[in-house]
């Protein structure tokens, strides 16, 4: 077993226990069966966490801009949590992690700080083929057991959960500006441009991550917008998805049967 680098002692101990044949997982029975169906065996429930202090950045009241310091904090903290989870998975000799969830917790005792957590179930291919990604690490994905099975049937394999984030400050409008355009519903190109820029930055960064993994694409992209604790004008735009590569390209998914369910 490879010794994990920056994990607490108890984590190493827990992982050691898992090496003796016991597996734990937060997969439901259905998901468990489908992961098995896809040719994988669950190894253990893995996680990573990081409590991160988010710095301050001044915003200009009337100007839309990216808050790079906050962006960096949000990104690094998630990356740390993800890395630790990957290390746990690596310690188990896993090929990948499925069902990854990324959460942010705020505690009363830590103002301006937040805990970033990543959970998932480490899995290993039963036929012994390696599914490590281009970086030699276990793949990660936020796919459920059902989605994992379905994806494998389409001739694609997951490479990693990729993300991009951008914290953006949306300008307040000056009173005179607002007054000047009373009674007219007109486009405000500056606002359009600001929102466009913010979301595009998040998506470009996500795509850059996929590029590092030499992925052929990203599926299930979600765009989340949260104000966290910064007030309504400062928004984090987070893009998340699972990078995939094509293996065979043949879709072996059987044609679905249409049913009409009589259940309520």
């Amino acid at each position: 077993m490879t010794q994990p680098q920056d994990l607490p002692k108890d984590a190493a101990h827990r992982l050691e226990e898992l090496e003796h044949g016991l597996f734990t997982s937060d997969l439901s029975v259905n998901e468990f069966l489908l992961v098995k169906e896809a040719g994988f065996h669950p190894l253990g429930f893995v996680m990573g966490s990081s409590i991160y202090h988010i710095g301050l950045q001044t915003r200009k009241w009337g100007e839309s801009q990216e808050l790079t310091k906050l962006t960096e904090a949000m990104y690094t903290a998630r990356e740390l949590a993800m890395n630790r989870m990957e290390e746990e998975a690596q310690a188990l000799g896993a090929d990948g992690v499925v069902g990854v969830r990324l959460d942010v917790n705020y505690y009363e005792w830590g103002s301006d700080s937040a805990e970033f957590i990543a959970f998932g179930t480490a899995v290993k291919a039963e036929d012994g083929t390696s599914h490590l990604n281009a970086l030699g690490k276990p793949f990660t994905s936020d796919l459920s057991g059902q989605d994992f099975w379905t994806l494998m049937q389409t001739g694609h394999v997951p490479q990693g959960l990729v993300m991009g984030t951008c914290v953006y400050h949306i300008a307040h409008r000056k009173f005179t500006q607002a007054l000047g355009s009373v009674g007219q519903n007109v486009e405000l190109p500056n606002f359009t441009q600001a929102l466009y820029e913010a979301r595009e930055l998040a998506m470009t960064r996500m795509q850059d991550e996929a590029g590092l993994l030499k992925a052929s694409g990203i599926v299930g992209v979600r765009l989340e917008e949260k104000s966290h604790q910064w007030g309504s004008h400062t928004i984090e735009f987070l893009a998340l998805g699972t990078a995939v590569t094509k293996t065979t390209g043949t879709v072996t998914l059987p044609k679905p049967i249409t049913i009409i369910s009589l259940d309520n």
Binding site: L143, Q146, D147, F148, T150, L151, Q153, T154, Q193, Y196, E197, E200, L201, M203, T204, M206, Q207, A210, G211, A215, S216, G217, I218, V219, G220, V221, R222, L223, G241, V251, L253
Partner: peptide, 23 residues
């Protein structure tokens, strides 16, 4: 915007489709 053009120039795909929809 410039960021969009940059993103669109890369050659991998991204999709908002869920896995079943992707399949």
């Amino acid at each position: 915007p410039e960021a969009a053009v940059r993103r669109l120039e890369s050659n991998s795909f991204s999709s908002g489709l869920s896995v079943p929809d992707f399949a």
